[in-house]
Amino acid sequence: MAQKSFRQALNEALHHEMRRDPNVIVLGEDVAGGSGASGQKDAWGGAFGVTKGLLGAFGPARVRDTPITESAFVGAAAGAAMTGLRPVAEIMFVDFLGVCFDQIFNQAAKFRYMFGGKAVTPLVIRATYGAGTRSASQHSQALYPIFTHVPGLKVVIPSSPYDAKGLLIQAIRDNDPVIFLENKVLYDTVGEVPDGAYTVPFGEAHIVREGGDATIVALGRMVHFAREAAEILAAEGIDCTVLDPRTTSPLDEDTLLEMAEETGRVVIVDEANPRCGMAADISSIIAEKAFGALKAPIMKVTAPHTPVPYAPNLEAAYIPDAKRIADAVRKAVAFKRS
């Protein structure tokens, strides 16, 4: 099977769905590139090159550059979704969604409910998230817990090129608003991706690796660190399961609880800040529903409760890594009830 980058996998997903369904449109800043200027059209393909080639294939009516006004074009996308289009709006950084909270929280997420199920909102909002690119505190946050908190939104965080393509196709075919978050450090990672279209369902965790001693739960880029930690630990004789929920809403509670019960030790890795984050949320579910199976306290490996620092050494210290994950697993394995 062909090896493709995370970026290429997303680009293929957009091509497949735009070919399949003329109602799928793409809008955002520089998704075509060159609009309103004398520059070359399709020069950019979005700030991260994900939409490259769509303008040529599908034309300016379906690939629309917008002004730098996230509140306006996210609101327009939500309204367009209600008319029967299937818009995919691209936001450069999830950090900028703050100016669109009313459009997302109060409008898109509520339409289905406030119109008695008669309106659907097949809207996808793609945005990058995550630290590690020296982009400082306003371009580096992992804000998925905020969207996970709001009923009516689905939240997707792919960790591999395979999942990126299948989850984006699923997101576009889904009739509810989906917040689709791409860790910008992963764009050039490579993996096996089928050439054809396929879906990855929401609410089904991926068992990345199986081991009986502990379960490491991780999302997005953290899955790679969790795997790395599991390799280090395997050499020490500690076998870990690595579980990637893939979507935080809906969340695959069944598999989380099954793995917690099988291994009795759980370490949750979260690039988000610790308060009200996914690590806190998942640990509360396991503590409530699988308490009897636990052999050790649930361990959380998260970013600290600070903005993302700009200084490279501090930013590196901010992001959870394989060493911290392995340490947490060792601590769980060594735990003895007194």
Partner: peptide, 8 residues
Amino acid sequence: LRFKRLDG
């Protein structure tokens, strides 16, 4: 599952 999820 990956096989079954391919379109067609």
